[in-house]
Design a protein around this nucleic acid. Structure first.
Length: 611
RNA sequence: GCCUCAGUGGCUCAGCCGGUAGAGCGAUGCCUUGGUAAGGCAUAGGUCGGGGGUUCGAAUCCCCCCUGAGGCUCCA
């Protein structure tokens, strides 16, 4: 709730004289230094911290109150008098000035005589209150929330874009059932089954992550295996973007809403922000890295020769105050981790070239993560008209048909974006990678570069998350395994498997051999552990299967004697005889180019705890 | 946020027209030294999500809250 305090006095007269300036004084003309008004409605006003959330609405409501009283008391004019002492929690001076000025303008536009007493000066004043029943009133200007402009919006048009041709989504022959499902969802035609998405159960069953009831909803705790996968994915994106020249940075997670650019950008997300106050500041938690990236870039000296230039940050965490009922598993969280790359381009043309190469990068992540992505390209009608050929060509970079959404007019900061979605077990999309051409933020955040003609120019910015949020990637991987489960043994890609090889000694006399084998594998950067518990082989095999271990080796007397190992290969469900070297080479090949981290758990299963 | 359903040992669940809790897995101990999806026996472990109410008595009935799931809405 927002409230500004005003005190209304119907006066016989008021006069004031400026004495000395404060640090926040506004510049004034000579005639404003001392003024006198008769039969005035004096409006003492204190703009408060919380008013920063929605200055527009505060102005509207204040004007309404003032006009109401003004018409009742029959004063000749209105005097807006800044009076900080009405509040113990003032807004920033800039916003206060802005609100006071706008109040005056709006009242004046209604043909009323209004004056505004200078802001930020020490003043003497003399006031004569009329003393009639309505002559002294105070009001709290209450704004429940920023009202959204409804207005019937013209709907988007949808097409399937395939091989340079546009098709009606209803008439297109789909090769991919995933694309068909995505289209059904986007067009609002997907009927739901009422089932629970399997990844929620899996993330807990596999000891990856769980809800933390003592946090807010939608915030998870991560166990070692889950933490490992998060870290590997983070390493993966880091390598991906730095390889193409992006520079990693890190920026704060909270921002001051007293900053005009921050406030306007934040308002785009309306109610879905975490807010926090300190004594002197009204802060928001970031919902993406944009804030820090833009502020950083606006303080950076850039020339056209530097562009395109990309900075990258993994936002641990981004915060979005999603509605209760929308928060679910790894799909929709209130605190999540998102790789976020911002590319500064000289102009729309350069941004289109970058966009193309980022399409390739995003498509690559689908292959590396073994997730099937379907793509939606969204463009404004204006952009499409001007760049029709480019749009057609770019869409083809995805390598398969894409859904094209044409927005009749620009609603958001972007003019063109591409979203990649995985389709979950229940046929619903998990939106992951995204690329957006932003035409607003450069200007709003005062980001500049020096052009070839030595003039300052405003750049175009591309937002890109090459994988989408890390949590959603893991969610998509788990949904994938649930789909796999119907036809084969589910598993993670080998490079993401917490245990890549498990060694199962048959009896105690095989323990030393098992430990040294596992150690040799670990020296080769393979996560290998040993099930040294006093259990039967059958039980250990069963447990290893439950842990989705890609390679399981049983060692007994035979293995002590020979170099051959009997390896249970999960992917094919076969037992394969091979030697150590072959196994190592095979795993190296499967994990080639992907990041590695060490086993985050005790090597001995007997020492592990249950989460 | 709204509607519907759910919350019982670490996990999965039974008990629920009222008489203060039960199984399997897991854990611990002992026996078994076992060659590919659960070896045997024993033991420990629960203020039945939290609070309030009805009652001689509440896991069980009623109210409020918290958490989770599904649906609606929403994801810039």
């Amino acid at each position: 709730m927002i409230k500004m305090r005003i005190l209304l006095i119907h006066s016989d007269y008021i006069n004031y004289k400026t004495k000395s300036k404060t640090k926040i004084a506004e510049d004034i003309e000579d005639k404003q230094k001392s003024m006198h008004f008769e039969n005035s409605l004096v409006v003492f006003t204190a703009v408060e911290k919380q008013d920063e959330e929605d200055p527009q609405a505060v102005v509207e409501n204040a004007v309404k109150e003032i006009k109401d009283v003004f018409s009742k008391v029959k004063a000749d004019n209105i005097v807006i008098y800044p009076y900080a002492h009405l509040s113990s929690s003032l807004s920033s001076p800039d916003i206060a000035k802005k609100i006071l000025k706008e109040m005056k303008e709006v009242l004046a536009a209604d043909g009323l005589k209004v004056e505004r007493v200078p802001f930020g000066w020490y003043k003497s004043f003399e006031l004569s209150c009329k003393g009639h029943p309505l002559s002294e009133l105070s009001r709290n200007i209450v704004v429940e929330k920023a009202h959204e402009e409804k207005g019937e919006e013209e709907p988007s048009r949808f097409y399937i874009l395939s091989e340079d041709e546009l098709y009606d989504p209803g008439e297109f022959t789909y090769q991919s059932s995933d694309l068909e499902k995505l289209v059904a969802y986007e067009l609002g035609e997907l009927e739901s089954t009422g089932e629970e998405p399997p990844h929620v159960k899996l993330m807990r069953e596999k000891d990856l992550a769980d809800y933390e009831p003592s946090a807010d909803i939608g915030h998870l705790r991560w166990y070692p295996k889950g933490r490992l996968i998060r870290d590997l994915l983070a390493d993966y994106v880091y390598n991906l973007v730095t390889d193409r020249g992006a520079m990693p940075v890190e920026t704060p997670i909270m921002y001051d809403l007293g900053d005009e650019a921050i406030r306007v950008h934040a308002e785009k997300f309306g109610e879905r922000q975490y807010r926090m106050g300190t004594k002197s500041k009204n802060l928001m938690l970031r919902y993406a890295c944009c804030f820090g990236a833009f502020r950083l870039l606006s303080d950076t000296f850039l020339t056209w020769k530097n562009l395109p230039l990309a900075i990258y940050e993994l936002s641990t965490y981004s915060f979005r105050l999603e509605k209760r009922g929308e928060v679910v598993g790894l799909k929709r969280l209130r605190g999540f981790t998102m790789p976020d790359m911002h590319t500064i381009c000289t102009d729309v043309g350069q941004s289109m070239e970058e966009f193309d190469s980022q399409i390739t990068m995003c498509a690559q992540t689908g292959e590396d993560l073994e997730i099937n992505y379907e793509a939606i390209m969204r463009v404004t009608a204006d952009f499409l008209e001007e760049n029709r050929e480019w749009v057609m060509n770019s869409a083809q970079k995805v390598g398969k048909p894409v859904l094209l959404e044409i927005l009749p007019r620009r609603k958001h900061y972007w003019i063109c974006k591409m979203d990649f979605a995985a389709i979950d077990y229940l046929g619903r999309p998990i939106e992951n990678p995204t690329i957006q051409i932003d035409v607003e933020s450069g200007e709003r955040f005062g980001i500049k570069y020096i052009g070839p003609d030595e003039e300052e120019e405003t750049p175009i910015i591309i937002h890109c998350s090459p994988t989408g949020s890390i949590e959603r990637v893991i969610g998509a991987l788990l949904e994938n395994s649930a789909i796999q489960m119907e036809v084969q043994s589910p598993m993670f890609p080998v490079w993401l498997s917490p245990s890549q090889v498990r060694v199962l000694p048959i009896a105690e006399r095989h323990l030393d051999f098992a430990f040294s084998l596992a150690e040799e594998l670990r020296n080769e950067q393979i996560r290998a552990d040993v099930d040294d518990r006093q259990e039967t082989v059958g039980k250990k095999i069963r447990n290893a299967a439950g842990d989705w271990v890609p390679y399981v080796i049983v060692v007994g007397d035979k293995e002590l004697e020979s170099d051959e190992l009997m390896v249970n290969v999960r992917e094919t469900q076969n037992k394969v005889l091979m030697d150590k070297k072959t196994l190592i080479e095979r795993i190296k090949e499967e994990t080639n180019g992907m990041p590695f981290r060490k086993l985050p758990l005790p090597v001995k299963l007997s020492q592990r705890v249950q989460f």
